[in-house]
Computed example of a mutant assay.
Amino acid sequence: MRSIRKLYQFFVDIPNETGSTLNDRYEVLRVLGTGSYGIVYLCKDLKTLENKIIKQLRPSKRNKRRELALFENEIKVLRSLNHLHVPSVYETFSSNGNYFYVMSFIEGDNLEDLIFEKKKTFKEKESLLILTELLEIVNELHFNSIYHQDLRIPNIIMQNNHPYLIDFGLSKQVLNESNQQKMQELKQQDYYDLGEILLFMLYTTYSSEKKKALPWTEELSLEKETVFLLKRLLGIKDPYLNSCEILADLQDALKAM
Rank of each mutant, 00 (worst) to 15 (best):
M1F: 15
S3D: 14
I4E: 12
R5N: 00
F10G: 12
F11H: 04
D13I: 08
D13R: 12
D13A: 03
I14G: 13
G19I: 08
T21C: 13
L22N: 04
N23Q: 10
N23I: 07
R25L: 04
E27R: 14
V28F: 01
L29N: 07
V31H: 00
L32Q: 12
G33M: 00
G38Q: 03
V40I: 06
L42G: 00
K44N: 07
L46R: 05
L49Y: 15
K52H: 06
K55S: 04
L57D: 04
L68I: 13
L70T: 07
F71A: 03
N73M: 04
N73L: 01
I75T: 01
S80R: 10
L81Y: 06
N82V: 07
V86I: 15
V89M: 11
E91K: 07
T92I: 08
S94I: 03
S95Q: 12
S95K: 02
G97K: 03
F100M: 07
F100N: 02
F100S: 06
S104D: 14
F105K: 09
F105N: 14
D109R: 11
N110A: 05
E112T: 04
D113M: 08
L114Q: 08
I115K: 02
F116G: 03
K118M: 04
K119S: 06
K120Q: 01
E124W: 10
E124N: 06
E124R: 10
K125S: 10
E126D: 05
S127Y: 01
L131V: 11
L131A: 02
E133H: 06
E133N: 01
L134A: 09
L134F: 11
L135P: 00
I137H: 01
S145H: 12
Y147A: 07
H148A: 08
P154W: 07
I156P: 08
I156H: 03
P163Q: 05
L165F: 06
I166W: 09
F168L: 02
G169A: 08
G169W: 03
S171Q: 06
K172H: 00
K172A: 06
V174R: 09
V174A: 12
V174D: 10
L175R: 11
E177V: 09
E177K: 10
M183S: 12
M183W: 04
M183C: 09
Q184A: 11
Q184P: 03
Q184C: 05
L186F: 09
L186E: 06
Q188N: 09
Q189G: 03
D190E: 02
Y191N: 06
Y191L: 10
Y191R: 11
Y192H: 08
G195S: 05
G195I: 02
L198D: 00
L202P: 00
L202I: 08
Y203F: 13
T205W: 03
Y206Q: 06
A213D: 07
A213S: 13
L214I: 14
T217C: 13
S221K: 14
E223R: 14
K224S: 15
L229W: 08
I236H: 02
K237P: 02
D238S: 13
D238C: 01
L241F: 10
L241Y: 12
N242C: 09
N242K: 05
N242E: 03
E245P: 05
L247V: 05
A248W: 10
A248V: 12
A248R: 11
Q251F: 14
Q251I: 14
D252C: 10
D252I: 11
A256C: 10
A256Q: 15
